[in-house]
Amino acid sequence: MRACARVATESAPGPGGRPRTRISGLRSQAPLMLFTTRAKEGEPSVAHRGVPARVSVAAGAAGPIGGDELRLEVEVGPGSVLVLSEVSPSLLLPGREGRVSTTRVRISVATGGTLVWLPEPLVAARGCDHLNEVRVDLADDAALLMREEVVLGRHGETGGRVRLSTRVRRSGRALLCQDLELGTGAGRTPVVAHGHRAVGSVLVADPLWCAQEARSRPRTRLLSGDAVVTPLPQGAALISALCQDNASLRDTLRSGLAALGPPWTPRPVPPPP
């Protein structure tokens, strides 16, 4: 199965002259279904960057299954704020003849723009072979929060192979480049994941950290277990965690965000209207 979905946002005048984010493009293609939504989980307080639009991705079918090629394009226009979430975890399944499934995500965040991307975990079923490729281009003063979570195997199952390839640039300059292989090869060694079944990270790029003095920027913080918050050059921080299950992974990543402080500390989920 091949599919390409796209979401684009722009800044438009809202009530009282305050700019709000308008969705200027929304294209779904089965199984990648996009729709506007309300806040799903505790988000950072991005209100100072603008009134956000919220879009959620729903998988209209099981998978990705080996052989599937999915593509998601995200364009955050100047000054707009997009919170992109996902309805449920993706279950990565093997296809015929051991074919690879791929998900390619292309993201651009224009000047003054903000993207908070909170996808649900990739759950690697036995025998799967999946490549998740993410390419992000940030404008000079764009802000980004991006989460990645992988769970190796369902309950009691040995997970298949997952590769996460991430390239993030700010103004064309490399900010974070990581190719993480899990489930096979180096993934099982004591340097990558060893016996951990849930591996994840959150990247936060805040243009304010570029400008601030060294002491106001994020500092290295050891979290519980095998998890750490580390400052990256160019005003960014990476929360990296290896845990035994997805619940503790999510908790650990949230504690990392809490360690970064406002505005990145997740706020409680607003009650339903």
């Binding site: 390839s165 991430t166 390239r167 640039r169 490399a174 480049c177 990581q178 190719d179 993480l180 292989e181 180096a186 004591p190 340097v191 990558v192 994941a193 060893h194 951990h196 591996v199 990270s201 290295t220 050891l222 095998d226 998890a227 750490v228 580390t230 990296s240 290896l242």
Partner: peptide
Amino acid sequence: HDMPAAAAPLLDVVAE
């Protein structure tokens, strides 16, 4: 930008 970037997250944690 396309050069190898093979990650070793446990090595990153133990280094810190």
